[in-house]
């Protein structure tokens, strides 16, 4: 078995043990998942993709897909990429590093910013990353999935790091992989519910209307997986930003369709707080807006293609497998 599969299998084992309704509920109340974090750290997952770990960026993104599948209530994308970038710059990866989006006002929106040991601020269209001077002024907040996203304002500007592949696009790719994983679970939950729920004396999975809804969901989920993989394949290439643009745009579109259809299949049960489905759909809705929504990335990709001209668009599409 190859290293990546071993990592992913271990992750699945740990996450399926820990990630349940109680943990997601607690996280939404602002409780940090200490036991889970300890497992993550003990297995060295927080250092995936760093040179010292002997794993690469593709391993890191494959791991994030698994995190999405289990709605892991930790800022794994931020921890992982922060550690990769910090170690590349010759700095020490501390435990819970995080990454936020810099805004024009100087505030940085940081997942779990309240617990972050080091914070990196990323801006669109820049390869530079600012290392925030801590402590910073913190205004706590949450995204629509109830995940902590805090607004940090530092008194002084910090040191700048440089990375090769656009850090903004790398964060978008992280969301793409989280979404690809979350979409898979949304499909699985829909299939499971349709087979368990009975109406009119038979399983609702036997109704053509339900079958067709889930077929649409399966098609979107399959497209999302393929689009996410293509984004990862483009790491280090001249088309990295554009491939991430295509992936984020395509997967974001899938989220809207899948969330809508899977909720419809679940009926009122899936609309209750008690059900687990919303822990996935609300995350998916949040993630599609993080680090550039569909319009943002469609515009980027479209502008590139327009620059090539009408008679080059096919070549562009057919160039990369």
């Amino acid at each position: 078995m190859d290293t990546r599969q071993l990592i992913l299998d271990t992750a699945v084992k740990i996450f399926s043990d820990h990630c349940d309704k109680a943990l997601w509920d607690a996280a939404e109340q602002g409780e940090f998942a200490h036991a889970l974090w300890q497992q993550v750290a003990e297995n060295g997952f927080h250092l995936l993709g760093t040179d010292a770990s002997g794993t690469d960026a593709a391993d890191l993104f494959a791991f994030l897909k698994v995190c999405g599948r289990y709605a892991v209530p930790l800022p794994m994308a931020e921890v992982l990429l922060a550690n990769v970038w910090l170690t590349q710059a010759g700095k020490t990866a501390s435990a819970l590093d995080s990454i936020g989006i810099a805004s024009a006002t100087g505030a940085v929106q940081v997942p779990w910013g309240r617990r972050a040991t080091q914070v990196l601020a990323v801006s669109p269209d820049s390869h530079g990353i600012a290392l925030l001077q801590l402590p910073a002024e913190i205004a706590t907040g949450q995204n629509i999935a109830g995940e902590p996203v805090d607004s940090l304002t530092a008194a002084e500007s910090g040191e700048m790091l440089q990375v090769t592949d656009s850090p903004y696009a790398q964060m978008a790719l992280a969301r793409v992989n989280l979404m690809a994983g979350g979409l898979q679970t949304a499909l699985d939950l829909g299939l499971q519910f349709a087979q368990e729920r009975s109406q009119f004396g038979r399983s609702i999975s036997k109704f053509q209307a339900i079958q067709h809804s889930l077929a649409v969901v399966a098609a979107e989920v399959a497209a999302a997986q393929r689009a996410a993989d293509a984004g990862v394949d483009a790491l280090g290439s001249d088309r990295f930003v554009e491939e991430v643009a295509a992936a984020k745009a395509r997967v974001g579109e899938a989220v809207g369709i899948v969330a809508e259809q899977v909720h419809q299949v679940h009926g009122a049960m899936g609309f209750t707080y008690e059900h687990r489905l919303h822990h996935f759909t609300r995350r998916l809705w949040s993630w599609r807006d993080d680090w550039g929504n569909e319009f943002y990335w469609q515009t980027k990709l479209g502008a590139s293609l327009a620059g090539l001209g009408a008679d080059q668009v096919w070549n562009y599409i057919a160039t990369r497998a």
Partner: peptide
């Protein structure tokens, strides 16, 4: 793409990008 030229409006660029993203994914599938 020909009509939009090399300086498309944001909505035109988004339409082009949206269509391209679908083609790229479908072709790979």
């Amino acid at each position: 793409v020909r009509i939009c030229g090399d300086n498309p409006s944001p909505h035109q660029a988004a339409a082009i990008g949206r269509i391209a993203a679908h083609f790229m994914t479908l072709r790979r599938m």
